[in-house]
């Protein structure tokens, strides 16, 4: 149905994305129960292998696994001890010897989840690799938009910020265009990747033009390590040009929603007011993240005969 691993949205066709979203929608009900647990993955082991700290994504996967009754183990590794490619694969092999049923991988270098998937028997889910992909974030974003708008096909989505260095942007571009939405990206010229149009999106350096008539505005987090790195003059300038507030939001459709993958730099990407109140749906995104990751674990982990899948 969706294959052995989930390494990126790029390799998912529309039907698979829809199966994942539909499954996640059913999983949401479990989160509303008094007893938030089903026995589906009882006796299965899910390993969170995070080479880069990420409290939110790691916690979300941990809760998702536990709600499906899996045993979830957090295997956190500091990046410094893994400067050699050799030791990375050694870590993966060590893990494999412990017979996990799914391994969730986060790494600052693009392609590491793929490398690990190549040597592991267990299915691998990419929880973010460098500036490559962050498929579970994009899927939960698609679920959130679907439930807010009732559809994805035909919507206009503007992604604002450091597009060139953002795995969230890349995965969302693949996902939303595959489901038939129009995707625009906007940011300072230094943050727009060259030839971004090959991904089927239109690039803007004017926020006003990018927001014109859109249904969804997605602000990206400005990474602290890039602040002062020469790609934009100052936080203040970024905030005044590309930071969203209610005044700038008026260029979008009156019923536009505002999204952010979190954590928000308040007053930079979003005004304080927008970070906390409608039309931003940031906490819905977080809530949907758990259901979405439950759906993926259900579809991917603990199948004895994954080769029957296709």
């Amino acid at each position: 149905m969706i294959g052995q691993d989930l390494l990126g949205i790029e390799s998912l066709d529309r039907e698979r994305i829809e199966l994942i979203l539909e499954t996640a929608e059913k999983m949401q009900e479990i989160g509303t129960r008094d007893v938030k647990k089903v026995p589906t993955l009882r006796g299965r082991t899910v390993v969170n292998l995070f080479f880069e700290p990420s409290t939110r994504t790691q916690t979300s996967f941990e809760i998702a696994g536990k709600r499906l009754a899996a045993d979830v183990v957090n295997f956190s590794v500091s990046s410094s001890s893994l400067s050699k490619a050799e030791s990375l694969l050694d870590t993966a092999k060590t893990l494999d010897a412990m017979d996990p049923d799914a391994v969730i991988v986060r790494h600052k270098v693009a392609g590491v989840p793929q490398r690990i998937a190549d040597v592991l028997d267990a299915p691998v889910i990419n929880a973010g690799d460098g500036a490559h992909e962050h498929p579970t974030q994009a899927l939960l974003d698609m679920l959130t938009v679907y439930q807010e708008k009732g559809r994805i096909e035909g919507l206009s989505v503007a992604i604002i910020g450091d597009i060139a260095h953002s795995r969230v942007a890349r995965s969302n571009i693949y996902g939303f265009t595959r489901l038939g939405a129009e995707v625009r990206v906007a940011g300072p010229p230094t943050m727009l990747p060259p030839q971004v149009d090959v991904l089927g999106v239109k690039a803007y350096t004017s926020l006003r033009e990018a927001l014109d008539g859109v249904d969804v505005v997605m602000a990206l987090r400005i990474q602290n390590e890039r602040l002062g790195g020469g790609i934009f003059p100052s936080v203040r300038e970024y905030s005044s040009t590309f930071g969203l507030d209610r005044a700038k939001l008026r260029f979008a459709r009156p019923d536009a929603i505002v999204m952010h993958p979190g954590p928000v730099n308040r007053g930079v990407e979003l005004s304080h007011d927008l970070a906390d109140h409608r039309p931003s749906v940031i906490l819905d995104q977080v809530r949907n993240g758990v259901a979405l990751r439950m759906a993926l674990l259900y579809l991917i982990a603990g199948r004895d005969f994954p080769q029957d899948q296709e």
Binding site: M1, L19, E22, T23, K26, M27, E29, I30, V38, P39, T40, L68, Y298, L299, G302, R303, D304, F305, P306, Q307, D308, Q309
Partner: peptide, 21 residues
Amino acid sequence: DTTLYRDDLATRGTRPRLRRT
């Protein structure tokens, strides 16, 4: 929906679609 409580999930290659609860 009883799907997540089925006794044959581990031995099936495919995951059944969920229904609503």
